[in-house]
């Protein structure tokens, strides 16, 4: 009913490219997360879908309507703004009610719906306050309540949790997930927090500098990053990336040698592996290097070592103890390794 399609959508300001050639089909009721570092064009993409930003090139379809020329109000979506956009002269109650009033929802439904929405985000105690008398997190929840008070084609949420404390963030995250399950609306959610992306998304779009890097389920993105940017952006710690060369299935760089790779590539490549895929080895490991730091995380211990000029993180058992400068041997299974093109960074295997 409300699938959203972006066809070759671009946004340019003079010579600056904000979003470049964005192509995506978002299925009805899908939860799609736009993920990327600050300034990569997430908000811009969302604003183009909402109709707040003119599209330089391309087409946007909502349902079976081409909406390029449609006013925001006629696109029937609701949006949570990164900077809230609450109406300062209205109380929280009036703020949440505003969309119902403008869209001429019958009067007698207003109260019930406002109360339901405010209950969902636990705002009941603040209904008579003005936005100026609320904390950042409370304002964000008002914005959220105002978005969910009606039932639009789609929800657009621009970093709706960025100002909540860690605990509230986890519970609101769960609420949003549940809300999506209950309301069954297409949702586009912007964040630069990969944990949010992983936990909420049906599919994630990773963006960088206005370009889509990869589209996939959270597991696809984690297990098979399409390039070194995605590899280094997803996961904590990020994937270890080492420059070296490969020949006959053997990767070498100073301090590291991995045999048994299936790739037939030859020449300089970038090798990646995740900290948790590596294990400590007694003899003949793939890496042998002195320990640079030891970080205790509680549930595990994080070692870092300097290999081929890069700091490499290795996740080991929580009882492991060693001094800085001790030599350590690390085994990396060839199956857990990712290979990326040396110059473009694109995945080879």
């Amino acid at each position: 009913m409300a699938q959203i399609r972006l066809k070759n959508v671009s946004k340019r300001w003079n010579n600056f490219v904000g979003v470049d050639n964005f192509n995506l089909d978002i299925a009805d009721q899908e939860f799609l997360v736009l993920l990327g570092p600050s300034g990569c064009g997430k908000t811009t993409t969302m604003r183009m879908i909402a109709g707040l930003e003119e599209i330089t090139e391309g087409e946007i379809w909502i349902g079976d309507r081409l909406v390029n020329k449609l006013e925001p109000k006629d696109r029937d979506i609701s949006m949570v703004f990164q900077s809230y956009g609450l109406y300062p002269n209205m109380t929280v109650y009036e703020n949440i009610r505003f969309p119902l009033k403008v869209r001429k929802v019958p009067q007698e439904q207003h109260h019930e719906r406002v109360m339901a929405a405010s209950k969902m985000v636990e705002l009941d105690d603040f209904l008579q306050r003005r936005p100026a008398a609320l904390s950042g997190g409370q304002r964000q929840r008002v914005a959220l309540a105002r978005a969910i008070v009606r039932e639009p084609n789609a929800f657009l949420m621009d970093e709706p949790l960025s100002n909540l404390d860690a605990k509230l963030r986890v519970s609101t995250r769960a609420q949003i997930k549940n809300l999506h399950h209950t309301l069954k609306r297409t949702t586009i959610y912007v964040t630069h927090d990969q944990i949010e992306a992983m936990t909420l998304a049906d599919r994630v779009v990773v963006m960088n500098k206005g370009l889509v890097q990869q589209v996939g389920t959270p597991m696809e993105i984690y297990d098979r990053p399409a390039n070194t940017f995605v590899a280094s952006f997803i996961g904590s710690p990020a994937m270890n990336l080492i420059q070296g060369s490969i020949e006959g299935g053997v990767f070498t760089a100073s301090g590291i040698r991995i045999e048994g790779l299936t790739s037939v590539a030859k020449g300089p490549v970038t090798l990646g592996f995740r900290a948790e895929d590596a294990t400590l080895a007694d003899s003949n490991g793939q890496i042998e290097a002195p320990i640079y730091t030891v970080e205790l995380l509680g549930e595990a211990t994080m070692l870092s070592m300097r290999v081929a000029g890069e700091l490499v993180s290795i996740k080991v058992g929580k009882d492991y103890r060693a001094e800085i400068g001790d030599m350590a041997r690390v085994a990396i299974p060839a199956a857990a390794c990712h290979l990326f093109d040396h110059s473009t960074g694109a995945r080879i295997a």
């Binding site: 925001p72 109000k73 956009g85 109406y87 002269n89 505003f98 403008v102 869209r103």
Partner: peptide, 27 residues
Amino acid sequence: IPKDLDESAMVDGCSRFEAFRRVIIPV
């Protein structure tokens, strides 16, 4: 007056002029 106000209002269902009249002028 932040632009977000007009934009919220327009997404919430106002035309540009309604946003001006119902949200911006009161502020």
